[in-house]
Write a protein that binds this DNA or RNA. Structure first.
Lengths: 341, 341
DNA sequence: CTGAAAGCGCTTACAG
DNA sequence: CTGAAAGCGCTTACAG
C-alpha cells in the first residue's frame, strides 16, 4: 500500500468531493451550489443538488465551522427552566431557528451574572452564529466579551433605547403599573406587592406598582413583602399567610408572578378567606392553570411566544447581515381580568 | 508581501501553536498535555498548562471535532418542554454533563416518531459524543441510524432487558398498579382511569391500572376515559366533569398526570363535589403545586432528577469507553399519600 | 517520552 | 461563471 493510502483517516461518510465527483464539477462549485450562493449556472446547481440528494450528503458542521470561522450554533441564555415563562420563550425560539439550520444551545444562568459570564465565555469559544440573552443585568466582563466577539446579539424580555442594542420585550414597569391601576379602579385602598426571586424584571414591576400607588396617594412601603427565595406556589401561600397576619388591613395583593399568586389563592381557600370579597388577588404572566383557579386569577398576559419568535427572527436577519427595521420591539402585554379581583 | 502571507485567514485567536511556541514544545505535545493524555513528562505538562493559561487559550471545538471525528455535543431528545417532567430531567442532565465539557443539545419531538427521526438525522451529522433519548417508541429508520452511528446512547424514562441497550427509568406499569392498589385498599370500588396524550408511558400506566383491577375483579372498561388531546389542567377539569356526568357511580379517579389531576381537583371544588368524600383523586409524577392543592393531591413521585443525573453519568462512562455496571437502572418511584384519597 | 507529516471536510481568496 | 491552491486549528498515525 502506498504512503498516501496509509495516512488516510477517512470516516466513510459522504463528503462534498463525492458529490462534486458525481455531479462532475469541482468541490468549490458544489459547495457554492449547495449553499445557494448566487453566481452558479442553474443547470450545475440542479446537477449538484440531485447528486447530493442521491448520495444522502449531509455537510459536516465542524468542517464548515472551521473553514468559515462561524458555526450554526446560537446560545440562548435564560435564568431558569423551572419557570414556565422561559420554557415558552425557548420553544418559540427553537421553532423559529431550527428550520433555518441554526442550533439553539440552551444555557441556564440561575439568575447569576457570574454564571452567565462563565457560560458566555465557553459558548463564545464555539464561534456562535448569534446570541440570545435575557435582560441587561450582567457583568462588565460579559458585556466586553459580547462586544469584542462581534457576534450578532438580541436581548429578550426587557427594552432599552441604547444605541446598537437589539431587544424584544415589553415594559415590565408599565405592566406592573397597569395591573395596580386596575386594583385601584376596583376601589382597593391597601394594595400589597408580594414578590420573590427579586430579579431585575421583578423589581421593574415593583417600580410600576409604586409609581401607580404614589399617583393615587396610596403608597405604603409596609405593604411590600419582598422575599429573595425562589418563586413557587408553596412560597406564595406562605407569603399570603404572613401578609394577612402582619398587615390585616390589606385588601388586595399583587403577586409578581402567577405561581406565587396561585399558591396565594389556594392558601386563601384553605384559610377560608374570601377572594375577591375580603381580598383581591392578581398575578403576572398568565401561566398555565391561572384560568382554572378558584376563583380564576386576574393577571397580565405576557407575550412569551411572540418574544421568542420575534427575537429569533430579528437575530436571523442580523446573522444574514441585514439591518433590522428597528432596534427595539415592544410587544406589549394584555390584561386578563378574571374572578379574583 | 509574500504569497504565504497573502493567503492567511488567521482569525486572531490564540491557537495551540501559540501555546506550543510559548511553552517551547511541539503542538502535538501541547495538545497531549492539555488533553491530559498520559505519557507526557510532568514538567512539560506544567509548562504547557501555564502557557495556555497565560495566553487565555481556549481550544477550538470545531477543529477538534473535525480532527478527532467526534464533538462534545450530546443531543437530548424529549417529547415536550411544556411538561415540567422533562424540564426537571433536562436540568439534571445539564448539571451533570456541562462540568465534563459536554454540550447538551435539546431536541423536542412533540411525541412524534417522524419528528424524532428528522432530529436524529440532523444531530447525528454533527458527530455527537453521545445520545440521550426518551423511551423506546421510534421508527425503524431511527433505530437503524442509532445503531450504525455507533454513538453511545442511553434511554430515559422506561426500562427494557434488551441486550446492548442502556436505560435508566422505572416501571411505569408497576407505578400505575401501585397507585391503583392504594385506591382499592381505601375501599374504592368504581375506580376510573382518566388519561390524555396517550403516549407509550401513559399506556403502560393504564396497563398497571388494568392489571390491578382485574386482580381484584373490579375492572370495568367503561371507567376508562382516554383523550388523545395534550395534557393540561383545563382538560383535566373537563374530563372530570364529563366523567361525573356519564359515569355517576364512580368513586375514585386515577389521572395519568398531575396537571390533569390538579385541574380535576379544582373542578371538583367548583362543582362542590367533595374530595375525597364523594370521590377520591390521585395523580402521577408529583409535579410542582400538587402538594398545595385543596385537598393536597395523592400521587406517585417519579425520580426525574435522579433519572437525568443517572442517565448522564451512565453516558459519561460509555463515552469514556467504559462498560457500565448494569445495562438497566431501575430508580423506582415513591407513593405520596395526601388528602385527596 | 517527543515530534514532523498528513489529514479531517469544508470555504476563502485569488485568478482566469 | 468556474476552479486549483491554500488554509481553518486541531489530532491521528507513524517513527524514533
Amino acid at each position: 500500500m502506498d504512503p498516501t493510502e496509509r495516512r488516510r483517516r477517512h470516516s466513510g461518510r459522504t463528503t462534498l468531493s463525492d458529490v462534486a465527483l458525481a455531479a462532475e464539477v469541482s468541490p468549490i462549485t458544489a459547495s457554492r451550489a449547495l449553499r445557494g450562493e448566487r453566481g452558479v449556472a442553474a443547470d450545475l446547481v440542479e446537477r449538484v443538488k440531485r447528486a447530493a440528494e442521491q448520495l444522502g450528503y449531509v455537510p459536516d458542521p465542524a468542517a464548515r465551522a472551521l473553514a468559515s470561522q462561524r458555526s450554526t450554533q446560537v446560545p440562548v441564555l435564560v435564568p431558569l427552566l423551572s419557570n414556565a415563562l422561559f420554557v415558552d420563550v425557548l420553544e418559540a425560539v427553537h421553532r423559529t431557528l431550527l428550520p433555518h439550520g441554526y442550533q439553539p444551545m440552551i444555557g441556564v444562568t440561575h439568575y447569576d451574572p457570574q454564571e452567565e459570564e462563565q457560560l458566555l465565555r465557553s459558548y463564545l469559544a464555539h464561534r456562535p452564529a448569534g446570541l440570545l440573552l435575557t435582560g441587561f443585568d450582567r457583568t462588565e466582563a460579559a458585556r466586553q466579551m459580547i462586544a469584542t466577539s462581534t457576534v450578532p446579539c438580541v436581548y429578550l424580555m426587557e427594552l432599552t433605547q441604547a444605541p446598537n442594542v437589539y431587544c424584544v420585550g415589553f415594559s415590565q414597569a408599565d405592566a406592573g403599573h397597569a395591573i395596580t391601576e386596575h386594583l385601584v379602579q376596583r376601589d382597593r385602598q391597601r394594595i400589597a406587592f408580594v414578590a420573590a426571586q427579586l430579579d431585575p424584571r421583578t423589581l421593574q414591576r415593583a417600580e410600576g406598582y409604586r409609581r401607580c400607588l404614589r399617583e393615587h396617594g396610596l403608597y405604603d412601603a409596609r405593604l411590600e413583602l419582598l422575599s429573595p427565595q425562589p418563586s413557587s406556589m408553596r412560597l406564595g401561600g406562605e407569603l399570603l399567610e404572613d401578609l394577612l397576619r402582619t398587615r390585616p388591613e390589606v385588601d388586595a395583593v399583587f403577586f409578581c408572578n402567577d405561581d406565587l399568586a396561585q399558591g396565594g389563592l389556594l392558601m386563601a381557600l384553605k384559610l377560608g378567606v374570601n377572594v375577591p370579597g375580603r381580598i383581591a388577588v392578581v398575578g403576572f404572566n398568565d401561566l398555565s392553570g391561572s384560568d382554572q383557579m378558584v376563583p380564576p386569577l386576574t393577571t397580565v398576559r405576557t407575550p412569551r411566544r411572540a418574544m421568542g419568535e420575534a427575537s429569533a427572527q430579528m437575530l436571523l436577519g442580523l446573522m444574514r447581515g441585514e439591518m433590522p427595521p428597528r432596534n427595539s420591539m415592544d410587544l406589549g402585554f394584555e390584561m386578563m381580568l378574571r374572578g379574583s379581583s
